[in-house]
Simulated assay, not measured.
Amino acid sequence: MANLYIDNVHKSFGETHILKGIDMDIADGEFIILVGPSGCGKSTLMNCIAGLEQVTTGRVIIDDEDVTQSMPKDRDIAMVFQSYALYPNMNVWKNIAFGLEIRKLPKEEIEETVGRVADLLQIRDLLKRKPSQLSGGQRQRVAMGRALARDPKIFLFDEPLSNLDAKLRVEMRTEIKKLHQRLGTTIVYVTHDQIEAMTLANRIAVMKEGHIQQFGTPQEVYDNPANQFVAGFMGSPSMNFIRCQVVDHQGDATIAMSVDGKDFHLPIPQQEKGVRERVGQEVVLGIRPEQITDVVPQQEQASTLANVDAEIIVTEPTGADTLTLIRMNDQEVNCRVHPARAGAPGDTMTFMINMDKAVFFDLASGDRI
């Protein structure tokens, strides 16, 4: 296990500037996830950590040792790829043992290590099979086993579950989390799947165009996004963004809203002092679908709640919830309601809006107010 420090790392390919000053301080045993859209620099940063790409400027420090110029083999890092990268002519046992044999470890130690890893990943009964005889999930376990056998300081996972079907992806996600809890090894994990990020990470780095937009715990990133990009990227379905105006209503700053031709006012949470100072200005209200739901009578007296009647445009049953689309300020808004209380398209339904966790963004910059 090891800590990892990425110090002002830049990476360019010719005139194309991919990484633009990345700073990360990763503690020993942390599970860090890099998320962001395609082309944001996630995999390039991973390759720079592994030594597969040389940084243009900046430093990569592992366990207080500067490894910026070190070869990949000297960094004591194991990488698990999206494509599994197994040797097709070798059985599972040989695939796991290959790296140990290259290092000329004693045969007894190799046998013990392969057995331990096979038991850990529950693949002992697969050791004699070739990769072509395995399912996608089994191949991914073997790829992880090969990395685990090396007992490296740091594991790097580059979108390891993207080739699996939805059910298997959920199962493997759980296995990776259990594995980390057992081993306590430092892991840096790249994904474009924000559900993976939320469920696996100790901390998440949200990237865009070579910059880290926010680096924090899953709950911090979800509840307190630094800007509109982070708020929209994390969460499924994503946060609603409603352009609206801050007005003075009966001596208090509120949000003016219109639904189906009827005007009403939404309370501004007391902690949002910066928004309260913008009376007469337009802002962007960010509110997640689970904050606009069917009426819960026992909560109706809370000061941050408001009820509104709205016509349902579309419903999407998901089992546990029904996603319901309405219009607010002439913009489509997703709501999450209980299936037993969900209306049908064309029906008018009363929705309860909870502003307690609402966030606000500057209209021009998209930054959090």
Rank of each mutant, 00 (worst) to 15 (best):
P317V: 11
T44Y: 15
P106Y: 07
P339R: 06
A320K: 14
A226K: 14
Q250H: 08
A78F: 00
H249C: 02
L4N: 01
F98S: 07
G115M: 13
F229N: 00
E159N: 05
G51D: 09
R103Y: 10
K208G: 04
N307A: 08
Q228F: 07
H192F: 01
D330G: 10
V308C: 05
V67T: 12
T293Y: 06
V9T: 15
P267F: 01
R336W: 08
L121S: 01
A320Y: 15
K167W: 03
L200A: 09
E272I: 08
R243G: 11
N91R: 02
L100C: 00
G366T: 03
A149T: 04
G319F: 11
D263G: 05
P269H: 14
R276H: 09
V308H: 11
R169F: 10
D347F: 06
G251S: 09
L183S: 00
V230F: 08
K20T: 02
M328I: 12
H10S: 13
N202S: 10
Q271F: 10
F81T: 05
T68I: 05
N89L: 05
E332P: 04
L120D: 06
I110S: 02
T16V: 10
D362M: 09
A50N: 01
F264M: 00
V275A: 03
D119P: 00
M90R: 04
E111Y: 09
H180C: 07
G36K: 00
S258K: 09
T304K: 12
R169W: 08
